[in-house]
Amino acid sequence: MLHAVTDWDLAYNNTANIPDGGSWPARWVEPAEAFRNRLQAAGRARLGLSYGPKPRNLYDLFLPEGASKGLVVYVHGGFWMGLDRSYWSHLAAGPLAHGFAVAMPQYTLCPESRISGITREIGAAITAAAGQVAGAVVLVGHSAGGHLVSRMACQDSPLDLDLRSRLAHIVSISGLHDLRPLCQTFRCEPLGLIGDEVVNESPALQSPLDGTRLTCWVGAMETSEFRRQSSLLANIWCGLGASTALVEEADRHHYNVIDGLAEPDHPLVRCLIA
């Protein structure tokens, strides 16, 4: 049975709902830096590539051994208001082991930008990275990043027709797909959630591109709102002709749900590149 939400801020506060939640994102810093240094020493990392004119319009590109089978783009979370590309480098390990190049962009944060502006920036970042690597393009994002990769598969996607045709799979991990509930949180004002922005930037309120393949992946230990947001998009887009799947990974919360990307044989990686 679903229950009415009485505290919207708490429903979207992952740190408060996870034991020792305050230890993230610091837990990711050391493994990400070590991985990045190792790939750079091996000549398989291109760091700080530009995709646009703004200071945060940068991405890192990690290359597999040998020719690339395609490109995976990982888009980070942080409620559109925090973090950068440096926290996640080690998550490239899984796709790299299967021969995929991995791009990790960052973007201008709110409130300096609006979410619609971030959507356009991620479109530009994917376009730039896809120009470096031939083949299929797979998009994966976490939390706010899950929202952003889902936006790439909406009918008003900022990607051009050629790049849309290369999209093989969208994986939204703990994504935020309907922005209307966030209007009832303290984040409403800094995110600029007013007027048409709320509807236009909600993938669950938009139609998917023809041929879209979407997986919504969420931790079974996450809050009811994050689980609902994942099931919502998978359900709605299935009814609009997309091929969708919903996975609730056991014993995973909002932060450690992405850790499987660092493991070549983890089900998340297998799903991503299948």
Rank of each mutant, 00 (worst) to 15 (best):
R227Y: 09
V102C: 05
T215F: 01
D156R: 15
T119R: 15
C216N: 06
L191P: 00
T108H: 12
C110E: 02
H147Q: 13
R227L: 13
D162Q: 13
P105K: 07
T127D: 14
C238W: 11
G241N: 07
G195T: 12
E225Q: 11
A101V: 03
E121V: 11
E222F: 00
Q155L: 12
Q132T: 12
L240Q: 15
A234Y: 02
L159F: 05
A220T: 10
S143L: 09
Q184N: 15
G123Q: 10
T223P: 01
T108R: 14
P105A: 09
V137E: 05
L214I: 04
L233Q: 02
P181G: 03
R213N: 11
L182G: 01
L214Y: 07
T108W: 13
G131Y: 09
E197H: 11
L233S: 03
G123I: 04
D178K: 05
A125T: 10
N200Y: 14
G195A: 12
Q206R: 15
I118Y: 04
Y107D: 08
L233E: 01
Q206C: 13
A245S: 14
E112H: 13
G211C: 03
G135H: 08
Q106A: 10
V102S: 01
H142D: 03
N235C: 15
C238M: 12
L167N: 01
G219F: 05
G131K: 08
L182P: 01
L161Q: 15
D160N: 15
D162F: 06
G135D: 09
Q106W: 06
H142K: 03
G117Q: 12
T108G: 12
T223V: 06
L148P: 00
L205S: 06
L159E: 08
T119C: 14
C110S: 13
E112K: 14
A101G: 01
M104C: 10
P208A: 11
I236Y: 06
T185K: 09
H177A: 04
T185R: 08
F100K: 07
G123Y: 07
S243G: 11
V137L: 09
V199Y: 14
A136N: 09
V140F: 05
G241K: 06
L139R: 03
A103Q: 03
G175A: 07
A103N: 06
I122N: 01
T212R: 09
G135T: 10
L191H: 00
S174M: 05
S143R: 09
S116Y: 10
V198H: 00
C188S: 14
A136Q: 13
E197V: 14
P105Q: 07
Q155I: 10
